[in-house]
Amino acid sequence: MDNTNTIIKVDNLQTSFFTHRGEVKAVDGVHFDVPAGKTLGIVGESGSGKSITSLSIMRLIESPGRIKGGNITFNGEDLLAKTEAEMRSIRGNKISMIFQEPMTSLNPVYTIGDQIAEAYQIHQGLSKKEALQKSLGMLELVGIPSPKARLKAYPHELSGGMRQRAMIAIALACNPQLLIADEPTTALDVTIQAQILRLISGLQKELGMSMLLITHDLGVVAETCDYVAVMYAGKIVEYADVTTLFKQPKHPYTVGLLKSLPRHDIDQDELQVIKGMVPSPDDLPEGCRFAPRCPFAREMCVNSLPDLRDQEEGNQVRCWIHTDEWDGPEVNVKDDYDYGYRTVEGTES
């Protein structure tokens, strides 16, 4: 992962929520970096901490949540040391974000044009007229039909796909170096999703941005990302370039995820499952967090948490199987993954 052209580097990020039930470690020691001009995908299921990771980068964590530790370096600058005012000049300017539900992130009482223009007025000090002129250009860029009329439209007058395009126009208005897209197409129909994904990838190449794509959809990852980090219960369990991840997944969770996915393009008899469910973040297992659900888990997995270690192929895996310390029989995770293959005593639910 040591790329000299790194746009953002996240190091040992820890974000917790302090509730009356105690500390909830939503993100617990996450490392990654995004090379300039590339896309890193963060995949995981609900509660894995993927969205909290992206909100932490934007410093948008609200009480009772707090970034407890770690470093976030953006273009050589320490984001966690910035004042709120400095952060505000970075957000929407150098780092932009698009969310899943455009209707909740757009302001319903302002026109689309006003909302795009705002970015230019705040960050570039343009006059309203100049800003609106530039906004028109953005609407054209994101492929909104009859952009001139749409400048004066309110969010509710647009369809879901069009709103997401408008969101992208706002996000990209100031030509950010990093775009964080948090489930940008999850609320959209597939035909619209295909349009939006193509639009985002096209614009990314055209504008030379880096991108952090947060998603639960492995299909979207395969089609848009260069690198992938798989998160489980607040930690990255596997990191690899996209081809390696899909061809040679190494962590039992990644394998389970891929095998439990119903595919529309191939026939599958029985779906593999991952037994049980994601542990509650206020009651995490002591050892490997996936151990209670892992078909290969042994005592060592239950007792101690493995590190994220470098592998030969340049990827990284957090699993005892891929270390010299592994004391069990030789396992090929991808081929041997089978529900009920072996169970840890006392963890069967």
Binding site: P145, S159, G161, M162, V190, T191, I192, Q193, A194, Q195, L197, R198, D217, L218, G219, V220, V221, A222, E223, V242, T243, F246, K247, L258, L261, R263, H264, D265
Partner: peptide, 19 residues
């Protein structure tokens, strides 16, 4: 239009116009 969870698959994607 459905994304395929396999980066090696080269498929012809038909992108529709409009909503």
């Amino acid at each position: 239009a459905i994304p395929v969870p396999d980066p090696t698959v080269e498929k012809e994607q038909i992108i529709l116009k409009g909503d």
